[in-house]
Design a protein around this nucleic acid. Sequence first.
DNA 1: TTTT
DNA 2: TTTT
Lengths: 147, 147, 147, 147
Amino acid sequence: MSSVNKVILIGHLGTDPEVRHLEGGSTVAQFRLATNEFYKDKQGNRVERTEWHNVVAWRGLAETVEKYIKKGQQVYVEGKIRTRQYQDKDQQTRYVTEIVADEITMLGGGGRSHGEQQGNQAASQANNATAEPNTFRQEPELNELPF
Amino acid sequence: MSSVNKVILIGHLGTDPEVRHLEGGSTVAQFRLATNEFYKDKQGNRVERTEWHNVVAWRGLAETVEKYIKKGQQVYVEGKIRTRQYQDKDQQTRYVTEIVADEITMLGGGGRSHGEQQGNQAASQANNATAEPNTFRQEPELNELPF
Amino acid sequence: MSSVNKVILIGHLGTDPEVRHLEGGSTVAQFRLATNEFYKDKQGNRVERTEWHNVVAWRGLAETVEKYIKKGQQVYVEGKIRTRQYQDKDQQTRYVTEIVADEITMLGGGGRSHGEQQGNQAASQANNATAEPNTFRQEPELNELPF
Amino acid sequence: MSSVNKVILIGHLGTDPEVRHLEGGSTVAQFRLATNEFYKDKQGNRVERTEWHNVVAWRGLAETVEKYIKKGQQVYVEGKIRTRQYQDKDQQTRYVTEIVADEITMLGGGGRSHGEQQGNQAASQANNATAEPNTFRQEPELNELPF
DNA sequence: TTTT
DNA sequence: TTTT
């Protein structure tokens, strides 16, 4: 206890979010977010490496992702790391590490692709009244790990 | 480009660090760090969930980890997320997500176990002169992903 | 818009928190938190510098601070920077920068001073059920800047 | 000791950076960075509040700021809080709180104003080889507080 | 496998 | 003094 598990990412979405509406009424949105780093290999060559993060958003935040966040967009994501296990098709235990988002902010001024500007305005209205436009926060709530 | 990949953890080590001295002269230290969260399940019962993070430190930071960080200790870790793939014993591709540490700080005032206070003093001397005692930073350097 | 203003501090309280119960029913708690850095001056001497942060907590978080956080304790504080102005006794405009806390976590295992261990247990019960014991979060709410 | 003092900001520059080249050869760059928050006042009206941060960058990071960062640009800033005192014109002690930057990343894809895209490419070459293009890091060094 |  |  007395622990902290915090992740801060700024990157671009590799695909449109996948959204599922669960039987209990919850919504889950998932997308892959790319961050990049550059380093020199042993030969002194400059190499780019892309890290792909599995971002998951729940409930209200998932619904906002569904409406306003698109492939290619640059976003700020704040959340926590969670590794969960599942059985693959051969019944072997596999692990996947995800970033469970608490807050997602659209960066870059928007307006880059079709309808995005409208999206942002709508987002402002849909959003929690105390948050900034283009910033979406997960309401603190039960966190049931329903996978 | 223009991306951010940052992780901040506070937790306790589940085991002593494993340290390897590579043929090229580099040192790598790895340990598992526990963070805990509490939530209510659908029946309203309070459930604790432990997240285990794979922390990796390189070079000077690894050597400091080897000397001063022990099982059970509470530490602050700042770093970045990196997922790498490897072949398991059945030649299947597997993925593991790690936290590559840039900075590790001992918390809790030390003195909890044998020789720790001495350890901290030695650490201050071993450490980068501009950093705080008990705070260890990775020198920015080539980052060759040698796994 | 689309902005981020986030502060993460780990330090020790310089004094017991000052708590005020406002006429509207709100509670405010304030304390000074010390962080330390070490650097070399131009003569190569090692110098320690203490930074004192003005931390402010509101409502439920303030009440928790009042009950469980004491002078000397090591805490993790997450929040945002806010500079506000006021008139000093000579009617001159002065500025003070504060950290408005969203989350406070007790570090170091507690038990260092009188009754602290009991305090932590009580804290677990008083706390938001989905949070960790020893971690206290501000409920997202109207943020009226009543100073 | 064992402390953390970390600030993460995403905002827009209110003015072009002011850059000074000190007699000792050091360079300092300063700019004001705006972050915004929205809240409801007691009457339920939605109010915007802008927080202005004093950002300071030193040495190589200052030179990069001088070359590539302009008024209006959206940037990510990582650094630490520092409050310093000075004597005002009436010989009264005044305090100012600043964010001493360790890392500055240009956001928003650039290309918004004249020559910015070229600027980014030049920046990549000027920059530390292991960092990302558009991300500029302070080299860890003596930190002499020369104000 | 940690911690309280 | 920024941005949408």
